Structure formats: C-alpha cells, structure tokens
Simulated scan of single mutants.
Amino acid sequence: MTPSAASSAPAVTRVSVVGRGRLGSAIAPTLTHAGYTVFGPTGRDEPVGDADVVLLCVPDREIRDAAAAASGHATLIGHTSGATGLDDVDFGLHPLQTFAGGDDPSVFAGIGAAIGGRSPEALTIARSLATALGMHAFEIADADRARYHAAAAFAANFVVTLEGLAERLLREAGPDIDDGDARALLAPLVRRTVENWAARGAASALTGPIARGDDETVARQRAALAPELVPLFDVLADHTRALAAERSR
C-alpha cells in the first residue's frame, strides 16, 4: 500500500513516532503496515529520526519539550493528545480508543479520530494519517478539545471507576464473592447495557428503579451505601431522573 495525501498537502511517506508508551507502540507498526516508512517509536532522550512528519505520542505535560526537541526534524509536528491545544504543534490526531498494550494493527480499524490543524495543510495531513490507520476522522476546534476529551473520560475512565465501585458493593453484599467473581457476574449486565445504549441511545436504554419511578427502592439503595458514596449516588440519581424524563417527552 502506498501512502497518499490530498493535493493541497505535501506527500507524506516518512513518519517519526516519538513515545514508547501503549499508543506509540501501537501506531508505529500500524503505520508501517499501511505503507509508511516509520522511525521509532523512540523514547525519552533518544534522537528523533528525520521524516516528513513527527508524531508525538507522549504525555500531555511532555508535549512542549518533545515538540521543541523534534523541531527541525520534520516539516510538520503533531501530537496525539485529546485535551491539549495546538500551540506547540502543527496538528492533533487523537484516537478515540483505549489501549491496553500489545495491540495489533486492527485496533484502529473503524474507531474515531479527533483531528485539528493550525493550517489547511496540517489538517489534511492529520486526516490522511487517520485514514491510513483505518480511523474515521472528525474535526475538533482547539477551543473545544477539553470538552471533547471530557466526553471520552465520561465514556471510558468514569465507567471503569463506576464498575470498580459496583464490584466493591457486590463483594460487600456477598461474602463469598471475590474480585473475579464480582467482575464475572457484573460483566454480562455491563455488556448488554452498553450494547443497548449503542443501538438505541441513552434514554431508550435506561432501565432500573429510577426509570420506573420506584422511589422506595432508590431510597433503600441510598440507605445501604457507605456515607462517602452517598453524594456520588445523589448526583448520578439526579442525572438519571433527568434522562428518564426525556423518555416521556
């Protein structure tokens, strides 16, 4: 496969990937598989390979220094951060996915990619790289990047936090249930819930006592919680009531 880009941007055939974390370690072989000549991923304090594009797969706090170190090694520099603006780079390319390590090239297939560019040329390069990786690119303005990334945190990070709390409550409710048992028992419920949400939307997928208007059961749930969990329960319950109200409109 030969890499290609829109006529408004220079042809990109060489990409230098900086960052040996989970994302950099997944992107580098996938770009190679897509036909690019890839240097790296390189680690901290290692020389940056000269290329058409340097793609920074580093923590947000390291972007500025990494971009400065990469200056002069490529025509354009991009980062893979979801929340960080483009002040120090030419473009952004953020895969809307979680990476656990050891991922094969198909991990990018069909997922979203938030892109942005400080110039039409840079935006075109970001889009072409996303397409080469097999992703669906969508543009996010710099001013909206933090809001976009918050959406990703709600969809992924906070879900994991809530599932961790669900494990804890189930273990406390059943003395014979250990960590593995709790996950095995809850996982089918979580999977079906996510599948229903993806197919039908949040309001239509909502079930449970709040959706049924069963305030007595909700009160019993609240009373059974440790005091430190009550404020979180109340906030989630309020938002769930608002979601349930959407179904009756």
Rank of each mutant, 00 (worst) to 15 (best):
A67Q: 07
D238N: 12
T75R: 15
Q221Y: 13
S119Y: 04
L55E: 05
H79K: 13
L170H: 11
A156K: 01
G72H: 08
D103K: 04
S8I: 14
S16H: 03
I115T: 07
I115Y: 00
L86T: 02
P105A: 15
G116E: 09
I140W: 05
A70M: 08
V107Y: 09
A11C: 08
V15N: 00
R192C: 00
R147T: 12
A202V: 13
D103M: 03
R222S: 00
A182L: 07
G24L: 00
A203E: 13
A224T: 08
R220L: 04
A83I: 04
Y148F: 07
A202G: 14
V54M: 07
V89A: 02
F91W: 05
A6S: 13
V160N: 14
T2Y: 05
L189H: 03
A100K: 14
G35P: 01
A150S: 06
S204H: 14
R212T: 08
G112M: 10
S7G: 06
A152H: 10
A74H: 01
T193W: 00
L31M: 03
V15D: 01
G180V: 04
V58L: 09
G72K: 12
V194I: 15
L55D: 05
P105Q: 08
L123N: 03
F138W: 14
G117I: 02
A34H: 04
H94D: 07
L185E: 09
V89H: 06
A9W: 10
T84Q: 12
T124I: 03
A182G: 14
G201I: 06
A152Y: 11
S128F: 02
G40S: 05
S204G: 08
R20L: 01
E62A: 15
D50P: 13
H73P: 02
A143T: 07
G116Q: 03
S119K: 08
P175I: 06
F108K: 05
A66P: 00
P188K: 12
A114Y: 02
Q97Y: 11
A26M: 12
L185Q: 14
D65H: 11
H149Q: 01
P29G: 07
A184H: 13
A11Y: 08
A66C: 05
T13Y: 05
T37I: 11
H33Q: 07
E228H: 15
A74N: 03
R22M: 02
G78P: 06
V12F: 02
T30P: 04
A244R: 09
D238F: 10
V58E: 05
L236S: 12
L55G: 01
G82H: 01
G201N: 01
G92M: 00
R222V: 01
G40C: 10
L23P: 10
I115W: 01
G49W: 04
G180Y: 13
T13G: 07
G19A: 04
G92P: 01
R171T: 07
P59F: 11
A70V: 15
S4E: 14
V17K: 02
I125D: 07
G116S: 15
R44K: 14
P209C: 10
G21F: 05
D88A: 15
L243V: 09
D50Q: 10
N157D: 10
A146H: 11
V218D: 00
A74Y: 09
